[in-house]
C-alpha cells in the first residue's frame, strides 16, 4: 500500500469515527407489505419558501383512517387532519376545511404539503406500495417527487429514528419519539 493511500484510509477511518451516531436505515425485505395500524408521537420540522416551523405531532394510522394532530410543546393541539371514507377534514383556528386528499389541503391551509398517505410507509422506512419508486446508491428513496433519507441511531431498529424528505424547495424532517400499538377498546376481563 502506497503512503498516500494509507493516509487516505486512515483519514477515512478517522472521519468515520468522528461522525455522529447516525446510520442509514435498511428496512427488512417483506414479500407483501403489511399496513399495520400504529400510533406514533414525534416532532416534525418544515422548511418552505425560506421559512420554517417546528412542531410536535401525534398520529394514529389505520388503512382506512388517519388522524394527525399538530401540537404545541405543551401538548395542546393547533391543527388536526382526519382522513376516512368521507374524505379529508382539517380543523385549525376554530375553522374546518374539507378536501379529497391531505396533500392538497395542507398545502392550501398550512402552506406546505403533508404527503400523509406515503408518509405512513416512509416513517416505517419503506417505499409506499403500488407507486413507482427507486433507491439511490446512498440508500435514499425517490418516490412521487420526494427524496427520502432514512436515519437510524441503532443497528437493527424496527423503524428509522428520523426521516428527511425533500421536494423542490420544501424540506420536511420527522423524528419518531414513541411507537404504540393503537389500543383496542375491549371490556376488561378479570382473571
Amino acid at each position: 500500500m502506497s503512503l498516500p493511500r494509507a493516509l487516505c484510509l486512515m483519514l477515512a477511518l478517522l472521519l468515520a469515527g468522528c461522525a455522529s451516531r447516525e446510520l442509514p436505515f435498511h428496512a427488512p425485505q417483506e414479500a407483501v407489505p403489511v399496513d399495520a395500524p400504529f400510533n406514533l408521537s414525534g416532532r416534525l420540522s418544515v422548511q418552505a419558501g425560506g421559512k420554517g416551523q417546528l412542531a410536535r405531532f401525534d398520529w394514529t394510522h389505520a388503512p382506512a383512517r388517519d388522524e394527525l394532530s399538530v401540537n404545541t410543546p405543551l401538548g395542546t393541539t393547533v391543527a388536526r387532519v382526519t382522513r376516512d371514507a368521507a374524505g379529508v377534514l382539517l380543523l385549525a383556528d376554530g375553522k374546518s376545511w374539507h378536501a379529497a386528499d391531505v396533500e392538497t389541503l395542507t398545502e392550501q391551509v398550512l402552506g406546505w404539503p403533508l404527503p400523509l398517505a406515503n408518509l405512513a410507509w416512509w416513517v416505517r422506512g419503506r417505499a409506499a406500495p403500488g407507486v413507482p419508486h427507486e433507491f439511490l446508491a446512498d440508500g435514499a428513496l425517490v418516490q412521487q417527487g420526494w427524496t427520502i433519507r432514512f436515519v437510524s441511531d441503532e443497528p437493527g431498529a424496527a423503524y428509522p429514528q428520523r426521516i428527511d424528505l425533500v421536494r423542490d424547495d420544501i424540506s420536511l424532517r420527522v423524528v419518531a419519539s414513541e411507537w404504540r400499538t393503537p389500543s383496542i377498546h375491549l371490556p376488561a376481563i378479570l382473571p
Partner: peptide, 8 residues
C-alpha cells in the same frame, strides 16, 4: 430540538 437538529 436536538434530535431534529433544527432551531426555529
Amino acid at each position: 430540538d436536538k434530535e431534529l437538529a433544527q432551531v426555529t
